[in-house]
Design a protein around this nucleic acid. Sequence first.
DNA 1: GTGGTCTAGACCACG
DNA 2: GTGGTCTAGACCACC
Lengths: 125, 125, 125, 125
Amino acid sequence: MEFRENEAIYSQVASFVTEQIMLGKWLPGDKIPSVRELASDLQVNPHTVVRAYDILQTKEVISNKRGIGFFILTDAIEKIKAFGKERFMGQDLPELLKSMYLLDIGIEEIAEKFETYKTNINKTK
Amino acid sequence: MEFRENEAIYSQVASFVTEQIMLGKWLPGDKIPSVRELASDLQVNPHTVVRAYDILQTKEVISNKRGIGFFILTDAIEKIKAFGKERFMGQDLPELLKSMYLLDIGIEEIAEKFETYKTNINKTK
Amino acid sequence: MEFRENEAIYSQVASFVTEQIMLGKWLPGDKIPSVRELASDLQVNPHTVVRAYDILQTKEVISNKRGIGFFILTDAIEKIKAFGKERFMGQDLPELLKSMYLLDIGIEEIAEKFETYKTNINKTK
Amino acid sequence: MEFRENEAIYSQVASFVTEQIMLGKWLPGDKIPSVRELASDLQVNPHTVVRAYDILQTKEVISNKRGIGFFILTDAIEKIKAFGKERFMGQDLPELLKSMYLLDIGIEEIAEKFETYKTNINKTK
DNA sequence: GTGGTCTAGACCACG
DNA sequence: GTGGTCTAGACCACC
């Protein structure tokens, strides 16, 4: 896996996990890869995965069964949506609107890109 | 002025300057505040303003007349739009579309917020 | 049975056994549940129960009759009180007093809660 | 500084900081020692102090001024009391009451120890 | 096997 | 100077 330069790896690992859940690749109730396993898969230090799992645990997306591993909580998807929407509405969206206004970009252009994006996603499925 | 946690202050200072220009508060050809003055106004370290001006100079938005100060270049607005659009289309927008897709946010919601945003901007003018 | 996060499960299992004895639910001289039985009842790994019984054996609260099972020793209650009081006075209480002092909690508040606690216990009997 | 065996060092460092505040040795609004400084003072790895500060920042006891250091928030004492009281009432107190009941310890004994504790504290002041 | 913690040492962006 | 991040490697308790 490749990581973006401008965001901390542990944060991207956490996002990776949430995406697996949101895309239905990992299911609520299931065990997720162990710290060492995911670290090996993603070619990062176990410490970094620990930090990512720690964040997800705080957000009540995953939970630790001692001595066994981490499991996806049954209401993980709702939690992810709640956190994500809060962030989107409070931070991302205001930035987006400001950029659109200042750069003189119309909503039609965004709508078009969004359609293209969704089409591409469905193709790769 | 208050700064967002997730972005470097010098970067937000640079954005502040470009916004003044885009909003027509500071005009091309005019002199902008001295490093010390802006640092004092925004309550930041002068070092930080130097770095912001440095970036804007690299982007050919402002120019330094030695011993006098920094001036907004005549084609600053075009430069800002070019840089801004590139960044927006290449980096910000893809992230946003992904969030919208995963969080199940429709384009209509964005369109509505955008209208509200534009209305509010015009009121404050 | 639910377990507290901050304490090892085997330790809580051991506490569970001592409580059954102190509350008179299990009597000195009697046989206690087999490792497998208790593990099944409490939904824990048999390994964990083994460890708990091991500790209680060391503290001379229970004793193993090979091939038959574990039995509560006749002086179990005295042993439990001795161990418990030592731990309470030497470790738990000092921490608690410090917390009470720093958080500005009065002894009256504790006394009141204690009365309520005792009343509730007697009701459930 | 010496650390207890049964509690993580980072947690004890966090407690150390809160105690300095509660005892009035460090004041709200003031800067606390830098990560490296405290790590050196307490003879621990800087990483460990980072983790402690991270927790305190989450609890809104301290706040980071970028490039300068961590500062005690003005309402730190209230925050500490709130967190502490919640923990005490929800976790420590129930344990305390149970121990008192099972070990047959009276409230008078606790009261006496508490008085002794407070007297000793005042002497060392 | 699992996660949790700690150290040592390095590099980086930021102010 | 400040904090933030990452790695490598080790040890531990627990299940």
